[in-house]
């Protein structure tokens, strides 16, 4: 199992479209994926879980990935968040 801390950088936070992208991406990997945030732990492959986080700009999340492709999954997920979900700041 590996863990990594990240910060949400896009200004709108984890709203509808980024949440959908995150879940879509995480679901491609076999590894389990959880997000810890301010005492909560949610399934990162669950759109409803991610939405209930309501993570806004600047929110700190800890990603927890566990499984055979955990390295690969974490790299991809981290990149998506770092890249601000590929969105220009609207």
């Amino acid at each position: 199992m590996i863990k990594k801390k990240v910060t949400i950088k896009n200004s709108a936070g984890l709203h509808a479209r980024p949440s959908a992208q995150l879940v879509k991406l995480a679901s491609k990997y076999k590894s389990d994926f959880f997000i810890h945030s301010y005492g909560y732990r949610v399934n990162g492959k669950s759109i409803l879980g991610v939405m209930t986080l309501a993570a806004e700009h600047g929110a700190e999340l800890e990603l927890e990935v566990d499984g055979s492709d955990e390295e690969e999954a974490l790299t991809a997920i981290e990149k998506l968040i770092e890249d601000k979900f590929g969105m220009d700041e609207e």
Partner: peptide, 20 residues
């Protein structure tokens, strides 16, 4: 889940509550 979304107080997902 609807309750949890409401509790999270996020304006972002109001529309999603209707979906749910």
């Amino acid at each position: 889940f609807i309750e949890r979304l409401k509790e999270s107080g996020s304006e972002l997902f109001k529309q999603r509550i209707v979906d749910l």
